[in-house]
């Protein structure tokens, strides 16, 4: 009977303690620690997973299908921690091409960032494309990115500048069926600057530590490139977007709003 009493009391204690909050309010010393964060870009169209050679509907009874390319450039990735401090991925390692061809079976494109200062991060900021500073520096600081960009067809061949996005496929509107679709919005030197930045709040704090491997799952809604801040129509010429000074900024702003952080994984 006594033992039973003890057991019950112990269990009761356990319950009570589990109900009380369990905060280890120890402030960690993180100086010098470095860790990594994996960004997972997940392209979709509306609430559908993206796949090549699949027809998607957009506004105004128009539809499109991407057949060969879905790529965009992400650069200047930086994070803000819960104290407002910002950490930027170092120059020279901070330009990436998110290429659907690089996606895994689940359609996720990984971007592994190493040597991130250990901290508790609450915000991520990145740029779409290449900023003007890079152009004024010429070849300096672009490292192997120039070669990578050219190989992936993200560099103009007749002007110096990057294609920030590359969508290639076919479209259908009221008058055309399976016409050629090519959206290659980018910057051209200093005369056309379409670089835009995106800041996203993380739904949960991301803890970067030496022994942890957090992931940030970023959802990219390709439909927003056409039906974003501004709805654009293929019938109005948006089936071919290259360096037009009117069309490209509209696409750039649309792209700025196509990213959200769907969720994060810690550990």
């Amino acid at each position: 009977m006594k033992q039973l009493k003890y057991t019950l009391v112990l269990l009761l204690c356990a319950i009570i303690s589990s109900c009380s909050s369990d905060n280890d309010a120890t402030t960690e010393n993180l100086t010098g620690q470095k860790g990594s964060i994996a960004l997972k870009f997940d392209n979709g169209v509306g609430d559908q997973n993206f796949a090549f050679n699949t027809t998607y509907q957009k506004s105004n009874n128009e539809s499109f299908q991407l057949t060969t390319d879905l790529k965009y450039i992400i650069s200047n990735v930086r994070f803000k921690d819960q104290n407002g401090n910002e950490f930027a991925v170092p120059e020279g390692n901070n330009m990436f091409i998110i290429d659907q061809d690089d996606a895994n079976n689940a359609g996720e494109i990984f971007l592994n960032l190493d040597n991130i200062n250990a901290a508790n991060y609450t915000e991520i900021t990145f740029g779409i494309g290449v900023d003007q500073d890079k152009y004024t520096q010429g070849a300096t600081g672009q490292g192997n990115f120039l070669t990578l960009a050219q190989d992936k067809g993200m560099f103009w061949s007749w002007a110096s500048g990057y294609k920030f996005v590359r969508l290639d496929g076919i479209y259908t509107d009221a008058t055309t069926t399976n016409g050629a679709l090519a959206v290659h919005m980018g910057s051209v030197g200093t005369s056309l600057d379409n670089y835009k930045e995106v800041t996203l709040t993380l739904p949960n704090t991301v803890l970067v530590r030496t022994n942890k491997s957090p992931e940030i799952h970023i959802k990219a809604d390709i439909l927003k490139i056409f039906d974003g801040e501004t709805s654009v129509n293929f019938a109005d010429g948006y089936n071919q977007v290259h360096t037009d000074a009117t069309e490209t900024p509209i696409i750039a702003v649309n792209m700025q709003n196509m990213f959200t952080v769907h969720h994060v994984h810690n550990d």
Binding site: T136, Q137, G138, A139, L146, S157, W158, S160, G189
Partner: peptide, 20 residues
Amino acid sequence: MWDGASTHLDLQPIIPISSE
């Protein structure tokens, strides 16, 4: 270039190199 397609000397050679 005749149309100012290149805004930095470093990057200009890419144009003739890439041109088919």
